[in-house]
Simulated assay, not measured.
Amino acid sequence: MDIFQTWRSPLILFAAVGCAVSGGIFYAFSTFVMQALGEQPSASGIATMQSINITVINPLFMAAFFLPAVASLILAIAALRDWSNPNSSYLLIGSLLYLIGTIGVTIAGNIPLNDALAVVNPSSNEGFTLWTKFLKDWTLWNHVRTIAGMLASICFAIAR
């Protein structure tokens, strides 16, 4: 028996749960965290987001964010290798949703915005101007990550 066949169901379950957890984290930011930060004076909101962007880089979050990506990559390869399996399309779609819609969007959309915010003085006029744009743009990209994570989870659940 192929080692993937032994680990197929647990890996799909892990990917489904992992994508849902990531989507849930992003959902919280999209539905109330960013709104709460936006209601603060800009200097306070900026300083808090700067702190969040530093503290999020920790082993627990990184594992919750990147381990589903590893599982997605493995499942995408497996889906392409066994395309005749009726669930392969769900595995591939779920994998692409997570890899592109969550990881890719984070790298191309959210991180550059975080990097720009990291170097601004929260009390400056530049900070105020950047913060107004940041709230809108960052939250938009975060909505994409939320939806992608949740849809990926659904695809993996169907494929299971």
Rank of each mutant, 00 (worst) to 15 (best):
M1C: 15
D2N: 14
I3G: 10
I3V: 12
F4S: 14
Q5C: 13
T6E: 14
W7Y: 12
R8T: 11
S9T: 15
S9N: 12
L11Q: 10
L13C: 12
A15T: 00
V17N: 09
V21T: 09
S22W: 01
S22Q: 05
G23P: 00
G24K: 00
T31K: 10
V33F: 04
M34D: 00
A36I: 12
G38H: 05
G38Q: 02
E39L: 13
E39F: 11
Q40G: 01
P41H: 03
S44I: 10
G45E: 02
I46G: 02
I46H: 10
A47N: 05
A47S: 07
M49I: 04
Q50H: 11
Q50N: 05
N53F: 12
N53C: 11
T55A: 15
T55Q: 15
N58T: 11
P59Q: 09
L60E: 10
F61L: 06
F61Y: 06
M62Q: 00
M62P: 00
A63F: 09
A63I: 08
A64Q: 04
F65T: 00
F65Y: 01
F66G: 02
L67M: 04
P68E: 02
P68W: 00
P68I: 00
A69Q: 04
A71Q: 04
L73V: 08
L73G: 12
I74C: 11
I74A: 15
I77V: 13
R81Q: 15
D82M: 09
D82K: 13
N87G: 15
S88W: 13
L92I: 10
L92Q: 07
S95R: 07
Y98N: 11
T102I: 10
T102F: 11
I103A: 03
G104F: 03
V105K: 07
V105A: 06
A108Q: 10
G109E: 09
N110I: 01
I111C: 02
P112G: 01
L113Y: 11
L113W: 05
A116G: 14
L117T: 06
A118V: 03
A118Q: 04
V119Q: 11
V120T: 07
N121H: 08
N121C: 08
P122L: 03
S123L: 14
S124W: 08
S124R: 09
E126F: 05
T129S: 08
L130M: 10
W131Y: 08
W131I: 03
K133Y: 07
K133T: 09
K133I: 06
K136Y: 05
K136M: 10
D137W: 01
W138M: 06
L140G: 07
L140H: 08
L140I: 06
H143M: 08
H143R: 09
R145T: 03
R145H: 06
T146Q: 05
G149T: 02
L151M: 15
L151I: 13
A152W: 03
A157T: 12
A159V: 07
